[in-house]
Design a protein around this nucleic acid. Sequence first.
DNA 1: ACTCTCACGCAACTGTCTTCGCGTTAGACT
DNA 2: AGTCTAACGCGAAGACAGTTGCGTGAGAGT
Lengths: 215, 215
Amino acid sequence: MTDVERADRDPAASTDASPVQAVGTTRPGGRTARTRLAVLAAVRELIAETGEAVPSIPAVAERSGVHAATIYRRWRTPEALVIDVALADVNERSPIPATGDLRADLTAYTTQLIGDAARPGGLAFLHALTAAAGTPEVGAAALPSLVEPRMEHFQRMLDAGGATELTPMDMLSLLIAPVSLGTMLGSLPDDADAAAAHLVDNVIAVEEYRRRHGN
Amino acid sequence: MTDVERADRDPAASTDASPVQAVGTTRPGGRTARTRLAVLAAVRELIAETGEAVPSIPAVAERSGVHAATIYRRWRTPEALVIDVALADVNERSPIPATGDLRADLTAYTTQLIGDAARPGGLAFLHALTAAAGTPEVGAAALPSLVEPRMEHFQRMLDAGGATELTPMDMLSLLIAPVSLGTMLGSLPDDADAAAAHLVDNVIAVEEYRRRHGN
DNA sequence: ACTCTCACGCAACTGTCTTCGCGTTAGACT
DNA sequence: AGTCTAACGCGAAGACAGTTGCGTGAGAGT
């Protein structure tokens, strides 16, 4: 009847040995991983369909075939669901290049970021993020694990590009933050390339300014 | 807010009203104004007490003494309540100076902004903002009326300070956005003055960069 | 002062979210 | 292969947000 039950009984449909996170859990194995994938897939679908709302847990339960009680036990809130999806997707969705050409790397990343934020899930993610930030038990654990890997990637890009003054934090302040707020307010220009070029110019400006004025 | 009040009235007689004082409504008088003040005061208190959550309407009803049905009829959602409080408070809470000294004005504003965002209500406001952005019927009306007056103030500050290249939008990208996201992620330095100086330097850097490279 | 009617209080109602106890299943481990 | 137990399914109970119809009181207009 449900996707999960079918997956459980059909040996051919068993997962192709891709160990999902669930680090530190006592039982990371097959069924738990399958339910997790089914739930996260349902969250993605619902976000894509319903526009930008954070999906309700009963809706995710029906869509995924996983019982609502199970979802409540594992995730507790809808926001945690969205955060979990984001954690699983961010790295492949907005890769951070490091070719050595700073402006090109920044432009490529920013353009993709703008496009990503404009997607239906973009606002849902921001919503979930603010909600998670308000509830320490969710945010305190999730936020660092979301941010830290990105910071390392940024550092590689900056090193490769010869940026001596900029820090990964500056990427947060000068790129991610304006794109996030701009998406919320709908104040981003329609032309994503122009918007990206604008933001990248700001980054370059800061790098040059600090070089001239010392750190 | 205006949409809700319009729904209560004759649809044809609707003229646009200032979201703060509700002037122009058919009955702006004593009782309506009192209930509104009582409700907004309760929202402020609840936000200050409960940390950073968006208060539930039943809670606001009990605290304010205004019946829940009334609040539902006028505001519709808790997010609209928080937005309304923000609309009423922002101008006095984070004034935008225009003394002619650009760096001093920027620093004063940014410092106050950081302090304001760190307050309990700061996160609640961001939460409400993202939620409002996701529901067009609330956000489409409220967001412009929140942003536009600020943009004008910024323009005055920039003019007075002799900034020829910067736009009010840049203040959004370079100051408000980083402070917002930084507050969410808890990534702002503990030293608010240092953080403000950092962000202000970025603004100055962009102004100088554009002067040298043409717009 | 009188009338009109908008906004509010009231209470019952509906639908949905959320939790809980218990039995069952399926990985993990020996 | 056998045992153990964490994780899941299930249904019911509870709590809560949100809605609606109706009567009343308080501004607004004359």
